[in-house]
Design a protein around this nucleic acid. Structure first.
Lengths: 249, 249
DNA sequence: GCCGATTTGTCCGTATGTATC
DNA sequence: CGATACATACGGACAAATCGG
């Protein structure tokens, strides 16, 4: 698939920043300069720069320029701003991922389950428990609820490899967005057992609950990810805009 | 201050979505229709819609339209995608905020402090401990490190009210962005004492560490916010783009 | 303090590509 | 296939902030 121009420029600038072609705290070449460099329009260049701002790589200051504020240490952590899988985060950081399926069943949701997942009562779903290992250490216990009618033909074998690959490449589903809520919850005996934890040490888990939507507008997945607290680390960059009102901290 | 056009349109559409002028799962009027409604250009309207996508209010599907996926329940939680203060979150959700200053000192950072904050060794800083109450319940213990040379004249009295108001309105500083890392850490005796917690119940805290930058490009603040785990709740919306590679979960 | 050059921010109109129905 | 809808891209215009003389 052919890449968009702004995407190419974004990746090139990002790579230049990561490899210190532009120094930390230094101003990048001006928009007009970069327009000539990439032979593109102003809007296209600005769009690429806008992506870098969202990533926390640069900050733009009206009347001055675009400053590089990228510091490698912070970016190596898990990133919450994007939809990225356990495996990708792992590989990006040079670790060896592994997934084990603990349970693969299907049933209809009762009232309590419906409330916590966001699906209607009685919805037919696949319920899957999976354990994610990093360098042979179990770190994340996942409880997946997949809408059965949206994910026909799902099997335990697929769950052992990549469910999302199946959704996209076989079912041709397009994933659009994912709403997540992060909380801290008490550790359960299940958590203790599978993650090799001792509740007398840490007695809590970092929990990320997510509802994921496809291009049909249907929420096809609810997942609760329970993370070992001592390995949990999420990175975020917040940009000041009119949308965030004024802080008073 | 005069608002930008796209900002006005964004707020109007947002308000219409929140008040169910457009139903959940319904397609909004097409771009061309909205262009006529607001008498604006295509780019301007698309910018407004793009903000709604980022907020998780709508999803756009090429060839089809813009679908409303706003569900009020999820949005009432704390939102991490924006720079928003404790007080604002509180007031937005109809609660009564209160801040108490536990400690107000200044010193130069030693090596260990420098490593954890990201400031250079020997930097002169204001160190402030503050306790945030919601409806008379202590929920968050904040450790603020402010770069002294960037925040001249800071006093305990200002810290009791609003430091950010002082920065913006008196010092005319412009806050640009904030890099945050969320982790789970063991509860300390200080946490226990001030947040009325018992380590035999929860023994962990939700911790948000942030580095905040102003328009001068200087990181002027490092803050560690320690949240009561049972009241901690952060919301996030992740949008699928070329930047996030393909999931394999 | 003013002015002009530079730089980013906002906005417009138009053209073309691509996905959906 | 055509009609509709969103996605990408271009070029131009003016506003607003910064900085140096």
């Amino acid at each position: 698939m052919p890449k968009a121009i702004y995407e190419t420029i974004y990746k090139d600038l990002k790579q230049k920043i990561e490899t210190n072609v532009f120094a930390y705290q230094e101003l990048l070449p001006s928009e007009n300069t970069l327009i000539q460099t990439y032979s593109c329009s102003r809007n296209t260049l600005r769009r690429a720069v806008g992506c870098l701002v969202t990533d926390g790589y640069v900050q733009t200051i009206q009347g001055k320029g675009v400053r590089n504020i990228y510091q490698p240490a912070a970016q190596t952590a898990f990133t919450i701003g994007e939809i990225e899988s356990f495996q990708e985060s792992a590989l990006r950081n040079g670790h060896q991922p592994l997934t084990k399926v603990l349970l693969f069943t299907e049933f209809a949701l009762n009232e309590s389950q419906a409330r916590s997942t966001g699906f209607p009562v009685g919805t037919d779903i696949y319920y899957i428990q999976r354990l994610h290992y990093l360098d042979e250490k179990p770190l994340i216990l996942n409880h997946n609820y997949f809408l059965k009618e949206a994910v026909p033909g799902l099997t335990k074998e697929i769950a052992e490899n990549s469910i999302y690959q199946y959704l996209e490449q076989t079912l041709h589903m397009t994933i659009v967005n994912s709403k997540r809520i992060m909380t801290v919850e008490k550790m359960t005996q299940i958590d203790e057992k599978y993650l090799n934890m001792n509740a007398e040490d840490y007695n809590c888990m970092a929990v990320v609950s997510s509802q994921t939507y496809n291009s049909g507008g249907v929420m096809f997945e609810y997942t609760q990810s329970r993370h070992r607290p001592d390995y949990f680390r999420f990175y975020d960059n917040a940009v000041r805009s009119f949308r965030g009102s004024h802080r008073q901290g």
